[in-house]
Amino acid sequence: MARYRNDLPQMKGGTFLSDGGIETTLIFHDGLDLPHFAAFVLLDTDEGRARLKRYYERYLGIARARGTGFVLDSATWRASSDWGVKLGYDAAALKAININAIRLLEELRAEWETETMPLVVSGAIGPRGDGYKAGRMTAAEAEAYHLAQVETFAEAGADMVAAFTMNTIDEAIGIARAAKRIGIPCAISFTVETDGRLVTGSTLKEAIETTDQATDAYPLYYMINCAHPSHFAHALAAGEPWLARVYGVKANASAQSHAELDESETLDAGDPDDFGQRYGALTRAFPTMRILGGCCGTDHRHIAAVCEACLPA
């Protein structure tokens, strides 16, 4: 049930938490095998669904203790057609898995939501290719590619969709246009390199302003994910109008570059306390940042540290 699709609570202010690095947590902490970094495969079994549910509940407990809202992003970052082929899922199986992912989040909402803790159900979309390497799609090709997953999330009753680890402007535009075509709210989250720019060389300012221009500013807001705060804090020039469009961050725990992380066989979880302090600095400098979560290498410890640094006791 799309409870909040026409009235998303995170648009009204206040802090909303999100989860951490779902794939890295499941692989390195829980010892699971996720082929092609795909967490959605767990939805195929009762045991896998139970593991995912426990994963989310750890974060929901933090949100409840802190009295914040929460954006529940589905475990579907890899659940699009090219990745589905690699994993043995045809179009019908992918549609079923995306629906099942939303159903799991609805179960969590039914069990955990309170008047002071709204839970937003968001269908997560990942890049068609490697999140660390630039894709080569036009905006029209990206719209056509991502349309099926966006449409499935809308049919399943998601409140919104969110595209994560976008590293090209054209793919972001295509997803926003697909969401607009279907009539479901969307958020776009870009990833950057150590210099604060997309892998294509575009700045965050260029990425956000160009996407807005090409879509009549359809995305409700933008986020930054899959980069350490030290990689992009300097790129957020205070006072520029485009910053008012940035509502959230899901950063990496590690300060390593994407190339270094790609080659690493161990998990760099960084320093959760330092991670939290960096979020504190970001939220003080940019008060529109209200959706706070983590990406690769982060877990519940990092989110707890973010709460310590960003929320009143």
Rank of each mutant, 00 (worst) to 15 (best):
K133Q: 14
G20M: 03
R66K: 14
R284Q: 13
K205N: 07
L204P: 00
T191P: 07
M289A: 12
N167L: 13
A305W: 00
D216Y: 09
V199G: 04
F40W: 01
S122N: 15
E141W: 03
R181V: 03
T288L: 11
D90S: 01
T288W: 10
H302R: 05
V121G: 03
T210K: 12
R54G: 13
V85P: 00
L60F: 05
A110V: 03
A304Q: 09
Q10T: 04
G61P: 07
A253V: 06
S254N: 02
D82E: 11
I291D: 03
E263Q: 15
S81V: 12
D268E: 09
T152N: 10
E308K: 15
L32H: 06
E113T: 09
L282V: 05
D44L: 11
T211C: 08
A176Y: 04
A281Y: 02
K180Q: 15
C226W: 08
H36I: 10
V71A: 12
T152A: 15
A140H: 09
S122V: 15
E240G: 05
N225D: 03
C295G: 02
A176K: 12
M137I: 00
I175F: 05
K180N: 13
D159A: 01
R5I: 12
T25E: 12
L60V: 08
S122W: 07
E263D: 10
T116S: 14
I188Q: 09
R290Q: 14
R245Q: 04
G31C: 04
E263P: 03
F286P: 02
L34K: 07
A156C: 04
S80R: 06
S254A: 10
L119K: 07
R278V: 09
A304T: 12
E193Y: 10
P241V: 11
E141P: 01
E107F: 10
L311H: 11
I97R: 15
S202R: 12
C295M: 08
F16G: 02
R5L: 11
L105K: 10
V306E: 03
A253L: 01
P185M: 05
G183N: 11
D19N: 11
A238P: 00
H29K: 14
V192N: 08
T266K: 14
K95G: 14
T203M: 00
E209V: 11
S18Q: 07
E111T: 09
I208K: 05
A75T: 15
H36Q: 14
K133R: 14
V41F: 03
R66Y: 07
F232M: 01
M160Q: 15
N98G: 05
H29Y: 12
A154W: 13
R197P: 09
